[in-house]
């Protein structure tokens, strides 16, 4: 009886909330939820992944209070929610930059967006066409299910398809591993994953006027181009339930967690 009553209280109480969605944001939300529960002992926050699409689906079915997305909500998702009478509110919680990486022995340091597009769509096949040594280019991509795959395709390839038969790796770690041991390799990973075993490429989105190194500072001052926002979405009608958590993530303390987990804080 007591347990049931407690359960009811925790389900209906404003302090219980669920977060569901993007796997990219999982480390961030988990850390934030832990800290948030330390400050508010009465609150319970459960965080689950599954992918950005899963988050919106859960919001639609009412099985989550907050959906975490590593991309902007899609138009048909928005219209589905609208049809159900749910108006969503969007909060940008952090930014995530993608770095393009090559083998450390590669002489190439600068690449333009057009060159990257050529490389990943299979038009540019040899490093000498991009100012490097005479060596075949081996582009590595993430698997199609990844939000990172979609974002890179959108931002760098301008929605064109990757070349047929691109190497696709199941995880970011595998990309780092492969690029670090393959001389002709090129791949893309989240900024937080950069290490000394691979070399980050400086990128230009404006012809070849200015090449920018991927770094937190450059992502913050908006000179580095391959940056995506990470969002929380929630039902505007149920704002009271999530207000405290949203307030926490946007606070100085919350934004410190953002930086600690390798993302870029919002100003």
């Amino acid at each position: 009886m007591m347990a049931a009553a407690l359960l009811m209280a925790s389900l209906t109480g404003a302090q219980a909330q669920r977060i569901k969605g993007s796997d990219t944001m999982l480390p961030l939300s988990q850390r934030a939820a832990e800290e948030f529960m330390k400050i508010n002992p009465s609150a319970t926050v459960t965080v689950t992944g599954g992918g950005s699409g899963v988050g919106i689906a859960a919001l639609l079915e009412g099985t989550t209070e907050l959906a975490q997305l590593s991309r902007k909500i899609k138009f048909d998702e928005k219209s589905k929610l609208k049809a159900k009478g749910i108006t969503v509110k969007e909060i940008t919680a952090a930014y995530d930059a993608l770095a393009v990486i090559v083998h450390p022995s590669n002489k190439v340091t600068n690449l333009t967006r057009e060159q990257l597009e050529g490389i990943f769509t299979g038009k540019i096949k040899n490093w000498k066409e991009a100012g490097g040594a005479d060596r075949a280019i081996i582009p590595y991509s993430r698997e199609t299910s990844s939000g990172t795959y979609e974002f890179f395709k959108e931002s760098v390839l301008k929605n064109k398809n990757y070349m047929p038969g691109i190497m696709s790796m199941p995880a970011t770690g595998a990309i780092i591993q492969s690029v670090s041991q393959t001389e002709g390799a090129i791949g893309y990973v989240g900024l937080a994953y950069l290490n000394r075993e691979v070399k980050a490429i400086h990128i230009s989105y404006n012809g070849s006027e200015s090449f920018v190194e991927p770094s937190v500072a450059n992502a913050k001052n908006e000179t580095y181009p391959i940056v995506r926002p990470l969002y929380y979405y929630y039902d505007a009608a149920a704002e009271n339930k999530v207000k405290a958590y949203i307030g926490f993530i946007l606070s100085d303390k919350g934004q410190k967690i953002v930086s600690d987990t390798g993302f870029i804080s919002v100003e």
């Binding site: 992918g51 299910s145 038969g165 199941p170």
Partner: peptide, 29 residues
Amino acid sequence: GNAAVMPHSLFQPVRTIPATIAAELGEAP
């Protein structure tokens, strides 16, 4: 390497059916 190309030699990346199912089923609507 999971590259979906027709194999011509043993020394090139290929993609197999089980790997494809495992990598893609999770996010396929």
